[in-house]
Design a protein around this nucleic acid. Structure first.
Lengths: 337, 337
DNA sequence: CTGAAAGCGCTTACAG
DNA sequence: CTGAAAGCGCTTACAG
């Protein structure tokens, strides 16, 4: 009933424990014949390598901590899938935690991950995360990569998406279509992804010699966006184009505008962000900015692997480019009356 | 630079290592004064508990392996969120793996999880998983819970959703609306979730004295479903109602039917499954069957915790009920010509 | 290419 | 309430 150990394997194979250990780790110091014998013994006994014991001696766990702010958001789920895929290729397991945008929970998880002895940490910092996240990790000698969000004024590896460039491109597109009264419908979460997007929007407007019509902040739910349509369109000077923080807002607004009888793509143009599958299912289809969370995840994992093996390498930021996807929700600005 | 150990803490506090160990574990055998001294020493040294070393001695890792078939599917992501939430409350960390519906990868992950010494396993069996999954776990004494899918003819704990009941209710609803020519648009993945749904559909049809018009199997993508609309509606005897494996199929068909100029809810009724957020955003809104993956995840975690603490408890199946959500995509059967 | 010894950081009885 | 000793299952030098 008890799990066999390397010692049992060694005895059965008639070698010492050290030799058996070399076999498990695939060392070339062992003769083929001995290896065969040891491997046969392992199979026969149903031996399972004990990574915990091995890690204790070698002081690594072959384990990486990943902390995301919201697993139910498909965007983070896909990011996680990318991280997992790349890490698993390297033989590292993911220890997962969901901070729920709560910095204290996040800190608790980081502590627990340290107790588990993870070899490194990938964190999408929860809203309100402070510099201490990065400074502490450096002090502990814990390899750390920030993903998708970057705590201001910190120094660490980072894998993200070009929020700024994506918004810039989308806004430029609207300007080229002749729109002048363009509003930005932002999220209400305080993190770098939000700032970067707003910056991209403002830069494009500025480049076109335009003033933003207004910037509205919404809760990031379909419901809130849908409800906001009325307020947005009933302003004295309504926008001819709306550019949204993400597709959740974009899809919600789409529905809200339809409810109001507004014809999207003619009366008002609408652009989302993320290019979720549903953007292409509704009618008129929602123009959006495609990001690649899976790739961002892979790149975060690669950065961490590099940091683990070269603790003193220069810090790197890998920014995945975005791609504007034009669809029917965007049309030329209505001719002025 | 080196991480302080319990021995350092003990020396600094002037106690033995065993006493320090009692303090870390919150034992009541230590006097308040001693506890204070030890805790102060821990803070001062920046001591971090080493769960790996502790687990090795106590032979548990405070870690649970979770294997899902597809992280990019929001349904599994939310399931995972539920598992994580419940496990984290109990102080257990999740070691995550994504099988990609690949049984061999799944087996590889299970082996690795054993090497990591997880205290238990929650698995959504990949398509084609055999009984060995459950039998092996039993032989190893590894606590195992199956989630969302159940390998036929196995005996283990299980947390799932009432696929059968949900389909039964939805189909009955269509029958009550006067539909007779009802088709089932199934997925092409071989697992219990698919069989259960089909069973529910067939049972309802049988109960209504009806023959299924036909059962179609599709790849589970928006694209495939969208493309299938033409074939479905151009049959000699087209359906008046379609009931879909899930909302991916439902949303794709919705779009495909719109493309054909079919008026959904009047010419043909359409029902999805899962009730994703987008079902309520498209027009006409898609009737669907709401499931609760987060709750299923929580219940899977609870079952596992119970199995870990009571290895010999009777096996339990917890089936979360579903809820039919009527929307405009469903209407009375068109009157016969 | 293989073996004997020490040690990774903790917990577990067992004494006192 | 506290301490000395053994051991969890491995790896790491060091010899040979």
């Amino acid at each position: 009933m008890k799990r066999p150990t390397l010692l049992h394997v060694a005895q059965k194979a008639g070698v010492s424990r050290a030799t058996a250990s070399l076999v498990v780790r695939g060392s070339s110091l062992v003769s083929a014949a001995t290896r065969k014998r040891v491997e046969a013994a392992m199979v026969e006994l149903g031996y399972v390598y004990n990574l915990g014991a091995a890690g204790m001696r070698a002081s690594r766990s072959r384990t990486v901590g990943v902390i995301v702010p919201d697993l139910t958001n498909p965007f983070f789920a896909v990011l996680l899938a990318g991280i997992e895929a790349a890490l698993e290729t390297a033989g590292l397991a993911v220890v997962l935690a969901n901070s729920n945008e709560n910095v204290e929970k996040q800190n608790g998880f980081i502590r627990r991950m340290r107790e588990h002895g993870v070899d490194g940490l990938i964190v999408c910092p929860a809203e309100g995360t402070e510099k201490a996240l990065v400074e502490d990790a450096a002090r502990w000698g814990m390899p750390l990569v920030q993903a998708l969000r970057f705590v201001r004024d910190t120094v660490s590896d980072y894998a993200g998406t070009d929020y700024r460039g994506g918004m810039l491109e989308a806004t430029n597109h609207l300007i080229a279509l002749g729109h002048r009264r363009i509003a930005f419908i932002n999220g209400n979460r305080e993190h770098s992804g939000r700032t970067d997007r707003l910056e991209g929007f403002l830069a494009a407007m500025d480049g076109g010699g335009l003033e933003p019509l207004f910037v509205l902040e919404l809760q990031l739910t379909h419901r809130a966006a849908r409800a906001a349509a009325l307020e947005i369109m009933h302003r004295p000077d309504p926008p001819t184009a709306l550019i949204c923080f993400n597709d959740v807002v974009g899809l919600g607004l789409h529905r809200g505008l339809c409810d109001l009888g507004v014809e999207i793509g003619r009366d008002v143009s609408l652009v989302g962000f993320d290019d979720v599958a549903e953007a292409d299912l509704i009618r008129p289809a929602l123009a959006s900015v495609a990001t690649e969370p899976f790739k961002v995840g892979q790149s975060a994992a690669r950065l961490l692997l590099r940091r683990i093996s070269e603790p003193d390498a220069e810090f790197r930021h890998e920014i995945e480019p975005t791609r504007f996807v034009l669809r029917r929700s965007c049309g030329p600005a209505p001719s002025q009356a």
